[in-house]
């Protein structure tokens, strides 16, 4: 990025931002394709079947073909829907998914912008997704959609609390909200997963719930609610939700890597300031694969069990964890 900074006719800072945004969008689409393929291929492996095999070598082009199909599909707007909100919902879900990528430090140099409050920025932006799901559920005017949306809101509000509490433990140690600062605080292998493994587990569980992934995929529980809040969406409306879901997973895992797994740190590489992004992506995808693994292994929890798990276990544990961290730091 520094190479393109001094080209003269545009302010370098603007150029930098444009470049970062383009990169972010590339990551969003690339991630959706890679994750969609991995998910289907791995699901196949878990279920002792080959998965997609027809399009390209081992079905590698399957997602591209699916994408073309979804773009080409008619966007059906059912009669009974609230037209404006119905069209708006996928966009509200998808647009905020791109923004957090601007502040995520992929390597020491590869970062769109290092905010002092980068962590809070991500949390604030990602929280908009709940609104999108609620709008989608409400505007569809379908009872299954509404049930899915209600579940999603209750779930996301509940799980944000243990998530934020565990974050606070990390912040107490690092003393900064800057994502780069948090990563640098863990340099030299002192990753926070070793310092506070409980916080990592709580955070990861909360992440699964926040991204509506199995076993907490209640908002789109297909065996109960057909497709939850997405029931009435087709074509691009559906695929925007689909891409947003994978992007939120990517962001959530990036956040976990930054907070607990030392971000880009790893064995030194040539041109480490840039190439150490490889370590970052490797860790992120390791977590994402874990998420896929969990999804294809466990049944779905029930709604009351989900909330009980949060309020009775995660919240008290994370509170105690915060307290212990504070006391240890004071000593």
């Amino acid at each position: 990025m520094s190479a393109v900074m001094n080209t003269g006719f545009l302010p370098p800072e603007l150029l930098r931002i444009i470049f970062a945004v383009v990169c972010a969008i590339v990551i969003v689409f690339g991630n959706a394709v890679v994750m969609g393929y991995l998910e289907r291929k791995l699901a196949g492996r878990f279920q002792r079947r080959p998965g997609p095999m027809e399009v390209g070598f081992h079905g590698i082009l399957q997602l591209a073909v699916d994408g073309v199909k979804l773009v080409g599909k008619q966007l059906i707007v059912p009669k009974q829907t609230d037209k404006v909100l119905y069209r708006l919902a996928p966009i509200i879900s998808f647009a905020p998914a791109i923004m957090p990528l601007v502040v995520i430090p992929f390597s020491p140099k590869l970062q769109g912008r290092d905010f002092d409050v980068g962590l809070i920025f991500i949390l604030a932006v990602v929280a908009i997704n709940v609104l999108a799901i609620l709008i989608a559920g409400w505007s569809s005017n379908n009872k299954y959609s509404l049930l899915g949306a209600m579940r999603s809101v209750a779930q996301n509000v509940a799980y944000e609390i243990p998530m934020l509490l565990t974050l606070l433990s990390v912040i107490l140690v690092t003393g900064t909200f800057s994502l780069r600062g948090i990563v640098e605080a863990q340099s030299g292998g002192a990753w926070f997963i070793f310092l506070m493994p409980v916080a990592f587990l709580i955070f990861f569980a909360a992440t699964l719930a926040e991204t509506n992934r199995a076993p907490f995929d209640l908002p789109e529980a297909e065996s109960e609610l057909t497709a939850g809040f997405m029931t009435e969406f087709s074509g691009m409306g559906f695929s925007l939700f689909f891409m947003a879901e994978y992007t939120y997973m990517f962001i959530a895992c990036s956040l976990t890597v930054i907070l607990f797994l030392g971000g880009w740190s790893g064995p030194p590489l040539p041109y480490g300031e840039y190439t150490s992004a490889l370590w970052f992506f490797a860790k992120v995808y390791a977590l994402l694969l874990t998420m896929i693994w969990i999804r294809w292994t466990f049944p779905r929890v029930r709604f009351d069990q989900l909330l009980n798990f949060c309020w009775k276990y995660l919240v008290p544990f994370s509170l105690v964890h915060l307290l212990v961290t504070a006391v240890v730091l004071k000593l």
Binding site: A43, F46, Q47, S223, W296, T297, F298, P299
Partner: peptide, 9 residues
């Protein structure tokens, strides 16, 4: 109950 894999087995 939401687990897809056992049916394949």
């Amino acid at each position: 109950l939401g687990a897809f894999t056992p049916i394949m087995y």
